[in-house]
Structures are given as C-alpha cells and as structure tokens.
C-alpha cells in the first residue's frame, strides 16, 4: 500500500516574472509523506528557483505544468495561503526584520493560522516556544533578538529551524544551496531536520544543496540531480556519493 504523495510536480516550467528566459523546463517530482529528498545540481541549474516557485515567490511564475500539494494544485495560492496549508521554505538567505523579535514574529505567524475571531493564547504560545527551543537546544534569550538582524550564518539557520519547529510544517523545503561552505550552518540545518523528522515521522523534507557535504550529516531517502532546469537522474543516497566523485559534467554530456 503506497501512500498518496504530499507533493507532486508534473512538467513544471517556470521563469522570472517580466523576463522571457525559462529556468525550469518541465520538472517532475513526487514526494511521499515522511520521506527526505535531496535535490542537487550545479550552480544555475534552477534549484533555488524551484524552491521559490513552491513557496509562491511573487518574482517567479509557473508557465506550464502543475504543483499539487496534498492533492490540490497550489500554483494560484499566495505564499501565506500555502504556508497555512503546511508548506515551509527555509531560506537560503533569511531576511532581516529590524525591531521585530523572533518571539513576536512567531506569535504573529501562529495568530495568522487561526480563524479571524480566534485569539492565540499567549501563555500557551510561550510554553510551546520554550519547549521547541529546548528541543533544539536553543537558549531562550535567542527569541528576544530581532529577526536575523546582525545574525551570523549559523544563527540565521538556527532561526529558520526554530521557525520550522514552531510552525510544524507538513512539507519543509530547505534551500541550502550555498551553505555547504559554513560548517556551523550546515550542522544546525542537518541536526534540526533530524530532530524534527524523528519527532514527526510524517513530515516530508526536500533539501536543496550544491554540495554533498550536507548529506554526510543527513541521509536522504532519495537524491535527485537537476541540470539546466530538469531533473536528469534520481536514485538513492549512493547517487550523492557518485556525484561527489564524478561531478555534474557527466549529466551535461549525457544530455547533449
């Protein structure tokens, strides 16, 4: 008995709004609940574009194909609507929001998930936040700092993982394209994903990375290779090791 996919991409094509050049040229991908997938590929292959299209970034538009989440096409939904359905994007470069504490931000995000008349119970929220920080071994004072303002690379990732822990997504897309260079950041992400996956076996994770290094910390169930806007190879964890040894050139060659 196989489960219904949580995410299913069929022939997805996408481009930057107001530009003619297509970046994704027909991506097919299927994620079953509870799986951890890695999407790898060289720079400029379209990995980050895919992450942004999944989350609904206004600067990108899908030109063909479909993105079904939990059986519904979500391409017409706003980013906040997708988030409220359980889609989470961990940003490659998290954005600074000066003057807004992480606690305040998360409280607002949790409130946004409730019906209009419903008020978030602040005491429950506080308990929950402390519990999540404890789980991830984050000091409580961290939540009082303004969102990403003056954060190191590792702290920004810690903040992304904390948000993920509080918001409890069903599908987490981790855009870690360049973070292979920052060991601290890498370990935060890998450790966080492991902890949260262990807690919620139904959570599905798509990790996007350029370097194999991240996958040393995090064993994916499936690895996909994206080159020039298409997924050219899918396989098990061994595929990542092959990539480390052979590089991406083999796929470019096979394409032409």
């Amino acid at each position: 008995m196989s489960k219904a996919p949580i995410l299913s991409l069929r022939g997805l094509c996408a481009k930057v709004v107001d530009e003619d050049v297509e970046i994704l040229h027909g991506v097919d991908l299927e994620l079953i609940p509870g799986e951890v997938h890695a999407l790898m590929g060289p720079n400029g292959s379209g990995k980050s574009t895919l992450a942004k299209v999944l989350a609904g970034h206004p600067g990108y538009e899908a030109t063909a194909g479909s993105v079904e989440y939990d059986g519904e096409d979500i391409l017409d939904l706003e980013p906040d609507e997708r988030a409220r359905l359980g889609v989470f994007l961990a940003f490659q470069y998290p954005v600074e929001i000066p003057g807004v504490s992480i606690a305040n931000f998360l409280r607002t995000a949790m409130q946004a998930r409730l019906e209009e008349e419903e008020e978030l119970d602040l005491f429950d929220f506080q308990d929950e936040l402390l519990e999540r920080m404890d789980l991830l071994d984050i000091d409580p004072s961290f939540a009082e700092r303004p969102v990403n303002d003056g954060f190191s690379g590792g702290e920004k990732k810690r903040n992304e993982i904390l948000q993920m822990a509080v918001l409890r997504p069903r599908l987490a897309v981790m855009d870690e394209t360049d973070s292979g260079l920052d060991i601290d950041a890498l370990q935060v992400v890998a450790g966080g994903v492991k902890t949260l996956s262990a807690e919620d076996p139904e959570m599905t994770v798509l990790v996007i990375t350029h370097y194999q290094r991240l996958l040393n910390y995090l064993r994916p169930d499936h690895v996909h290779v994206m080159v020039d806007g298409r997924i050219v190879r899918s396989g098990g964890a061994a595929l990542a090791e092959n990539l480390e040894a052979e590089g991406y050139e083999q796929f470019r060659a096979s394409e032409s």
Binding site: P58, D80, A83, F88, F91, V95, F105, L106, A109
Partner: peptide, 13 residues
C-alpha cells in the same frame, strides 16, 4: 519584496 515574501512564507498575510 524579499521582506514581505519572507514573512508571508510563514503564514502572515
């Protein structure tokens, strides 16, 4: 746009 998108991707309108 990036600030807005970041917050919206967490569920804020």
């Amino acid at each position: 746009e990036e600030q807005l998108f970041y917050l919206m991707s967490r569920g804020l309108s």
